[in-house]
Design a protein around this nucleic acid. Structure first.
Lengths: 243, 243
DNA sequence: CACGCATCCAAACATATGATAAGCTGATTC
DNA sequence: GAATCAGCTTATCATATGTTTGGATGCGTG
């Protein structure tokens, strides 16, 4: 399966690429008791109200987090790609305030909260790296608020395509010009605050304008600069630089 | 001035109320080099692109954070009340990805980043408390995504009124049944992803239905339970319990 | 007191997006 | 290879929200 080619190796390896960690820091990470676990597409990793005991590091596949509102509507609040530490958000909170679900088949490594917290404070460089990861996620959430709140469907959709392209590239998962995007239009709508029908219209318009090409479950960006401009996309909120 | 009555005393005092910290933890916090600083209404505390060197603890007044999109539209991404640590979000990031601005006259205490980080890792209980505060903020951001993405104007507006009521009450700033809300309808619109005109319509509708009463710059909640139901509001995402 | 300015409010009209429905495609199953 | 099913596509119609405008109100400043 194609996705497997890009699977991330290990938490230590991934953090090492972005933070300056010494031998002891890396040893600490490698000594964490990680358990691999696989999930089917659509399977829940965690439900709102649960009391999670593990952080999960996403090795392979896509995962997303979402909330359900009163009328049954669903809002996806984040999308995760291999290399993301999915569950640091819940680490110091008691009760999950959202659901986490597998988008595709996915493999994660589970690490017990207590061990991760203990390591974070025993090895401050590791703690800072993890804390920083949670802050970057928060930054992405803020951008999503602006995206959903103040951009129209066309800008919004283009923005999501740019963001995922950039995050994938930055995680070493492949070039931003074309990538696998295994989301249905319904799911895209739930991420963008739109209906599936309108996502369809919008994607078609972007394609007719020569900005992107869609095939089955992947996107090609034909004109990155123009798409970027339409989306009002910048990379600053992703904080891609070294920590 | 009325707001001053509710001013928060100190960072140590505020954290002590929510976290179990021992004498050394509190000493560490009190020994931080905090500088008081006042801001005029609308004055910027920080601009996108700045490289902040201080965390700010909000003692008095209201502050908000926002982003500007391509067409000049503005999206408020968070609203802060006394007791909030405004700038932990930027602490481990280089460059601010959003603006921070005073809503009313405001007083903050500034603490140098390095000192705060050093304390966080010297006194893990303090570090956990601060980290947790940033995670709660992230949780609120997620709820805002859902609010703007999947709730209509009426629900959205009611939700914001409930959230601020609850957060104020929980911070010990007064009862949730009535409170000062010194935001213009334009600013409310920027927070809700609506236009000022539509905020006006929506507030009027909520008032006509007997849910709230507005006077000058404050709100009274006439029927908390009904407003809560309209808003689809729950407190779980605020994580009000002890850390 | 007069003036300017921000805010609130209301009405008329415009439009982006939602809702519903129906047909189409391609994969999977028996 | 027929049947089924999920997802995509397109069209029509409905509506929530935006846009524009103008007037009322209140407040600070000269």
């Amino acid at each position: 399966m194609a996705a497997r080619v890009f699977a991330i190796r290990s938490l230590a390896g991934h953090l090492k690429a972005r933070y300056s960690l010494d031998r002891d820091d890396l040893d600490g990470i490698e000594r964490l008791n990680g358990t691999a676990r696989s999930f089917e597409p659509n399977q829940y990793l965690l439900r709102e109200g649960d009391r999670p005991k593990y952080c999960s590091f996403l090795v392979d596949g896509f995962v997303y987090r979402h909330k359900i509102v009163a009328d049954g509507g669903r809002q996806i609040v984040s999308i995760h790609i291999p290399g993301d530490i999915i569950d640091l958000q819940n680490m110091l909170l008691q009760e999950a305030d959202h659901n986490i679900q597998a988008l595709t088949a996915a493999t994660v490594l589970l690490f017990p909260h207590e061990e991760v917290v203990a390591l974070a404070f025993a090895r401050p460089a590791v703690g800072k790296a993890m804390w920083r990861e949670t802050l970057i996620e928060a930054s992405i959430s803020r951008e999503w608020i602006a995206n959903v709140g103040r951009r129209d469907a066309r800008e919004r959709t283009a923005h999501l395509i740019c963001e995922l392209a950039m995050r994938r590239e930055s995680a070493g998962l492949g070039p931003r010009e074309a990538y696998e995007l295994p989301m249905t239009q319904e799911q895209l709508g739930d991420a963008l605050g739109l209906t599936a029908v309108h996502v369809n219209r919008t994607l078609k318009a972007l394609q007719d304008d020569g900005l992107i090409t869609r095939s089955k479950r992947s996107v090609a960006v034909n004109d990155w600069e123009r798409l970027r401009a339409v989306a009002d996309f910048t990379t600053n909120y992703l904080h891609l630089g070294q920590g």
